[in-house]
Amino acid sequence: MGFLHEFLQQMVNGISLGSIYALLALGYTMVYGIVKLINFAHGDILMLGAFGGFFVLAAYGVTPLTFILALLVGMLVCATVGIVIEKTCYKPLRSAPRINALITAIGVSIFIENGARVVKAIGPNPKQFPTFKTVNFPIGDINISQIQIIVFVVSILLMFLLTYIVNYTKLGKAMRAVSFDRQAAYLMGINVDWIISFTFALGSALAAAAGILFASAYPQVEPYMGIIPGLKAFVAAVLGGIGSIPGAMVGGFIMGIAETLTKGFISSQLADAIAFGILILILVVKPSGILGKNVSEKV
């Protein structure tokens, strides 16, 4: 295998990983855009979504139909959880200083992780995630597995769906309005509480989808599984410009590709150092992130 082939193969690996980061980063960026809160519990929603999918797939077996069902169930469960968290934990703190909500988010994150450890159905020990049998599609010397294809296609579909909702529906218009100026939006008759809840639900549903895709590619589920992807996706969101939806997607892909290429061509020990190094570099050159521009772009 020549250098070019190896490079292309690593790009395939990187894009597959990056699409999961991108999906997760969208949740961070949307919530930040609307309520200026870094929702640190977002990675744990990924875990809950993965477990939602786990129960469906464990009960009905793995077929394309049950996989879609698992995605729907996971997304529905997490959307509900997202709304509950928002109503109970963040809403009472909406007028408090931002740092209070941030600390609450960390608290919610620890609560979900350890709560999951205690709950009988989840428990502290890793479980095997039921997944498709590995099938490969060799294209020349480059090898793509069907999991990589599924991850990529589902992520892109969901990103298109989100872009459509935000840009072309009335709800999306309301979201953008709330993000732009909450007070003015309220005065224009927009139900701000409902829009914020909807944003949390949407972000959490995307996290659930990311969780199920993550668990399909790396078939193991446990209560702490969301921490590292959560952190990486957060960095991806900041890298792309937090608050910007296209930024989160770009940031996610950059993180995934940078991580994989570092592992592939430099050293696996430097993967995170270089990925985070890129973040520092971009923030020094462009503090608002790659696509973070003026306020009107934020959602």
């Binding site: 295998m1 190896e6 193969q9 690593q10 690996n13 990187g14 597959s16 990983l17 590619a217 790396y218 193991q220 590292i228 991580e259 994989t260 290429l261 570092t262 592992k263 592939g264 696996s268 020990q269 993967a271």
Partner: peptide
Amino acid sequence: SYSTGDKDFNAQLTKIKA
């Protein structure tokens, strides 16, 4: 090599395969 807790090994495996 990788570190404890890593879940993605595709990059290393691509190198190994080569």
